[in-house]
Design a protein around this nucleic acid. Structure first.
Lengths: 233, 233
DNA sequence: TTCAAAACGTGTTATTATGACACAATTTTA
DNA sequence: TAAAATTGTGTCATAATAACACGTTTTGAA
């Protein structure tokens, strides 16, 4: 054994992830129906432990990949939960983060292997440990971020319409938004490119399909936009 | 030994804290001149290890108390740093947070006991490990938060003038602000109460001393205010 | 074939917020 | 007593916002 610090407490470090998805109508969570101990049969977030030879960020990507089959997922760290008794099995400190994915793009097989299911936010069950608190905080953070930064696009397919984007924002904030003001706001960011196509799935007037200007998105990511202008955190 | 998870990796968990202070002119950091190993003689952030019987948040308060003699300090978690080789002594994951204190209110004795000194942000030395990255991130986060939330008050004494507050914001963003627009902005929040007193230390026109409307501050904390309206994150 | 219903795209207007700038008042000191 | 520094308040043109109206496209029922 090499040199070590003279401090006895070494702790199991977990990561727990809130995965948000959007089906066009509602905001959803990818939750695990546990077929393993502890708390078998109950619902929880997807999680895992940090390995000895693994960066924390690498571990987060690994856990997301195991759950969704996707790489390069958008995620943000939220908070590290470290109450003594948060895990009844053993003292565990958990680094918690949320991820945004296109609900139609992930691997069904990967989700199935983890016994994971999409659950509407409005129907969310009680979760084990402090996972419900984590979801509360994730939702708060998502609202905070999405009000100012264009992260909502991460939840949509490559091509999307402005009404779809609006429905997403309405789902995130659980509030109706004015169609005309929202459209003006979004278009003023110049982040959207008209693909020339229209949404053929519509039963009424077909909406214009846009795609994100990826280059401008990366460049302007940190500029405030106030997507939901009357939103108070 | 009670039940444990079947996972071998248990890790030393550290906390590192960026303490910001403001002396009326410049934004400063409370840094440690290390008289202990490792990296004796170099500069670092104040830190410590999480104890077995201690909540993470309690540990953060303990570390801040040991450094400043203050309780109920304003602090926010920033990020958990978990790269494999971030600490050359032993794998250590560090929960990093920043704190804001009134530079004149803390205990000189406590700081002296920790060999801590106030260093202007502009003169900041290289720090050990990844502590310089932590400071960068803390500053970014402070700017982000202070642009939208009235946390700047945490750095000032109980009674302060609007010009003092403006100097603080100018120090945080390292940019000049328009005196008249800033004043209008701040007063429009209705967070300031005129104490009826004036700043007797001034060599010219004495500015009005205000105090924070604590009740309204707590209530409105999460409302956006855009204190620095042309600030881009 | 036509018309009603639903959803989409764009425009108008009053109000408020912002950014740039001017001027008068206070205090100390030369 | 006047100059210099600093503070408090005001103005104005422009931009952003919130509330609201109208015409267009598309489907499907009459």
């Amino acid at each position: 054994m090499l040199a070590r610090y003279n401090h006895s407490t070494r702790i199991l470090l977990a990561l727990d992830c809130i995965v948000f998805g959007f089906d066009g109508e509602e905001l959803k969570l990818l939750l695990i129906k546990r077929d393993f101990e502890p708390e078998r049969g109950k619902w929880s977030l997807m999680g895992g432990f940090l390995n000895e030879d693994e960066d924390l960020e690498v571990a987060a990507n690994r856990i997301l990949y195991d759950l969704t089959g996707l790489k390069d997922i958008y995620f943000e760290e939220i908070k590290t939960f470290g109450e003594i008794n948060r895990d009844p099995v053993e003292r565990t400190v958990s680094v918690c983060f949320f991820a945004l994915i296109n609900i139609h793009a992930h691997s069904q097989d990967a989700a199935k292997a983890q016994n994971a299911f999409w659950i509407s936010l409005k129907d969310r069950p009680d979760l084990i440990f402090d996972h419900s608190n984590m979801v509360d905080l994730a939702l708060e953070r998502l609202r905070y971020r999405a009000a100012l930064h264009p992260i909502g696009f991460e939840l949509l397919p490559e091509k999307f319409t402005i009404p779809q984007l609006q429905k997403l924002y309405e789902a995130i904030y659980d509030t109706p938004l004015d169609r005309r003001n929202f459209s003006r706001k979004i278009l003023s960011t110049k982040l959207l490119i008209d693909t020339g196509e229209k949404n053929e799935n519509s039963a009424t007037k077909k909406a214009i399909l846009y795609k994100l200007d990826q280059e401008k998105y990366q460049r302007q990511f940190n500029a405030f936009h106030y997507f939901v202008s009357d939103f108070k955190v």
